[in-house]
């Protein structure tokens, strides 16, 4: 039984984008804060901390979820993937990222990492989604800049390949 008391700071180890990393956290620390400020993975963004905007979405053991609704300690020992893992080591964008660029699917880019991670999970499960399915999954994210059209087009493009 793992137990961490309230003001205790313990070392939380997890795999982030293939690398074993750890940092200290008390039990109440949110995974979003832990990733950004504990591990320096600032590509994951925070837009609401109550689970609506989706900008904090990351993969835990391959499954897309809100890192603001997850405690860092819950991710202990798990495999976490964030937007920083998507491009090739030389910076080449992956097909999903490229499609976002080609379809002007981002403006300020703040919502974008979360959306990319959601569809990284979703397209792995369902590589040929219908447009309704794309819209259904995308509805778990808020974007204030684009009006969403470019995002839908980008994902459709990937789905058609």
């Amino acid at each position: 039984m793992r137990r961490v008391n309230r003001n205790e700071r313990v070392r939380i180890a997890l795999t982030l984008n293939g690398r074993r990393l750890s940092a200290e956290a008390e039990p109440r620390m949110l995974l979003s804060d832990f990733l950004r400020h504990g591990l320096g993975a600032t590509g994951t963004h925070v837009g609401c901390e109550h689970g609506v905007c989706g900008s904090c979405t990351v993969l835990i053991d391959g499954v897309a979820q809100r890192s603001c609704l997850t405690l860092a300690v819950q991710a202990e020992g798990r495999e976490v993937r964030t937007v920083e893992s998507l491009a090739a080591p030389d910076g080449t964008l992956n097909p999903l990222q490229q499609a976002f660029r080609a379809n002007h699917a981002l403006q300020c880019g703040f919502c974008t990492p979360g959306i990319l991670m959601s569809f990284t999970d979703y397209l792995a499960r369902n590589p040929k989604p219908t447009i309704e399915q794309i819209r259904d999954v995308l509805s778990g994210h808020l974007c204030r800049c684009t009006g969403y059209a470019g995002i839908v087009a980008a994902i459709e493009e990937v789905a058609k390949r």
């Binding site: 039984m1 793992r2 137990r3 961490v4 008391n5 309230r6 003001n7 008390e26 039990p27 109440r28 949110l30 804060d33 901390e49 405690l71 300690v73």
Partner: peptide, 12 residues
Amino acid sequence: MKPRPFDYVRPD
């Protein structure tokens, strides 16, 4: 906002 402090336990 951030949560208030609490103890955390993950039973087996």
